[in-house]
C-alpha cells in the first residue's frame, strides 16, 4: 500500500498544478511579469500594438521565443481562455481543435475536434497537424514534447504570467498578434477598457483600506484566491479587501477555517457551487453564524468560468462582482 499512496500523492502534486490551469482557464502574456495593482492609467490599452506584422516574435513563459512567419491556420488550443479570446477576435476559423473543457462560446462548446488539455496526448495533437499549439500550463511537459516535434508552441503560463487584469489584456493583445488580428484585438480591448473605466469610476472615492472584506471560495475545503492571482486583481480593482491577502505567496492558498471566521468577511463569493456548495450550506456551517456575511445574507454564487478564465469575460465577472459588492453604486 505504500507505493500506491506515494503514487497518489505524486499524482496529487501534478494535479494541483493542473487544477490551477483548469480553474483559471488559460491565458497568455506578453511578458509583463509584474502583477502590480491595476491603476487608473489606461496606457496598456492605448499603447497596444496596432501593426500585424509577420514574421513576429512572441516571448514564451519558459524564456524561449516563438517565431511565426505568418498567421497560423491550424491552431490547437489547450486553453479554454485562449479559445474564448480567439472567438472574440473572430479568428475561430484558424482553430483545428480546442480542449475538452472549452465550453464558451457555443462554437467552442460544440467544436467537433476536442483534445485533453489535462493529460495532453502528444500523438493525438501531432496527428491534427497543427501549425500552432496554445499551452497555458506545462505541468505535463507538453511544451518540450512539442518542441521536439518542431511544432510551434504559444506558451504563456497562467500561473506565472497572468496575475492582473492588465495581464489578461496583454494576453488578448498577444493573441491578436499571433492570429494576425491586432486591429480586432485593439477594438476588443477598447470596449473592455471602457467597461473597466466605468467600474473604476464607480468605485472612485471608496477607500481601499476600509473596503468590504471579501472571501472568495474555490472549494469547500477553503481553497481561495490571493492578491497574487488575477482574480485577486478583480477585488483590488473593486477596492474590496480579499481576506486571503497575499496568500503567503501562493496565488491559490488554502485558508484555515478559523482564519476565515476570524477575518469575518462582509461578503462571501462562492465559485464552488458546482461542487454542491450552496448559500444555504454555507450558512449552516458550524461556527459560521458569527460571520458578518452570513448574518447579513451577503453570500453570492458566481459562474466560476467567467471569473477564473483570463479571457474577455473577465470584465463580465468584474461587473457582476461590482453589483454584488456595491449594490447601491452599480445597478
Amino acid at each position: 500500500m505504500k507505493m500506491p499512496r506515494v503514487m497518489l500523492l505524486v499524482g496529487a502534486a501534478t494535479a494541483i498544478l493542473a487544477f490551477a490551469t483548469a480553474a483559471c482557464g488559460s491565458g497568455d502574456n506578453g511578458g509583463s511579469a509584474s502583477p502590480g495593482p491595476f491603476t487608473d492609467d489606461p496606457t496598456p490599452i492605448q499603447g497596444l500594438a496596432t501593426v500585424a506584422e509577420f514574421p513576429t516574435d512572441i516571448p514564451r513563459s519558459d524564456g524561449k521565443t516563438l517565431t511565426l512567419a505568418g498567421p497560423p491556420t491550424r491552431i490547437v488550443s489547450l486553453s479554454p481562455a485562449a479559445t474564448e479570446i480567439i472567438y472574440a477576435l473572430g479568428a475561430e476559423a484558424a482553430l483545428a481543435a480546442v480542449d475538452n473543457q472549452a465550453d464558451f462560446p457555443d462554437g467552442a462548446m460544440s467544436f467537433s475536434t476536442k483534445v485533453d488539455a489535462y493529460e495532453p496526448n502528444i500523438e493525438a495533437i501531432a496527428g491534427l497537424d497543427p501549425d500552432l499549439v496554445i499551452v497555458a500550463n506545462n505541468g505535463s511537459g507538453i511544451v518540450e514534447k512539442l518542441d521536439q516535434l518542431n511544432i510551434p508552441v504559444f506558451y504563456q503560463d497562467i500561473d506565472k504570467d497572468v496575475r492582473s487584469i492588465s495581464d489578461v489584456f496583454g494576453q488578448i493583445t498577444l493573441m491578436g498578434r499571433v492570429t494576425g488580428r491586432s486591429a480586432q484585438a485593439t477594438q476588443l480591448l477598447t470596449g473592455l477598457g471602457d467597461r473597466l473605466k466605468v467600474i473604476q469610476d464607480g468605485v472612485q472615492g471608496a477607500n481601499a483600506s476600509t473596503g468590504p472584506r471579501v472571501y472568495h471560495e474555490l472549494d469547500q475545503t477553503f481553497f481561495t484566491i490571493s492578491d497574487e492571482s488575477f482574480i485577486g486583481d478583480l477585488y483590488r480593482t473593486l477596492r474590496a479587501r480579499n481576506i486571503a491577502g497575499s496568500g503567503g505567496g501562493s496565488a491559490y492558498p488554502q485558508m484555515t477555517q478559523e482564519a476565515v471566521i476570524a477575518s469575518n468577511p462582509a461578503i462571501i463569493i462562492l465559485a464552488d457551487e458546482e461542487f454542491g456548495v450552496t448559500v444555504e450550506s454555507v450558512k449552516a456551517r458550524p461556527g459560521w453564524s458569527a460571520i458578518e456575511a452570513v448574518q447579513n445574507d451577503r453570500i453570492f454564487g458566481i459562474d466560476p468560468d467567467i471569473v477564473s478564465r483570463p479571457g474577455p469575460r473577465i470584465i463580465d465577472a468584474l461587473e457582476q462582482l461590482a453589483k454584488l459588492i456595491y449594490p447601491t453604486r452599480f445597478r
Partner: peptide, 18 residues
C-alpha cells in the same frame, strides 16, 4: 472527470480543515 480533479485530490490528501 478532470473538472472534479481538485475535489478528489483534496479528499485524498486529507486533513481536518472542515
Amino acid at each position: 472527470y478532470n473538472t472534479r480533479t481538485l475535489a478528489i485530490l483534496n479528499w485524498i490528501l486529507g486533513g481536518f480543515n472542515t
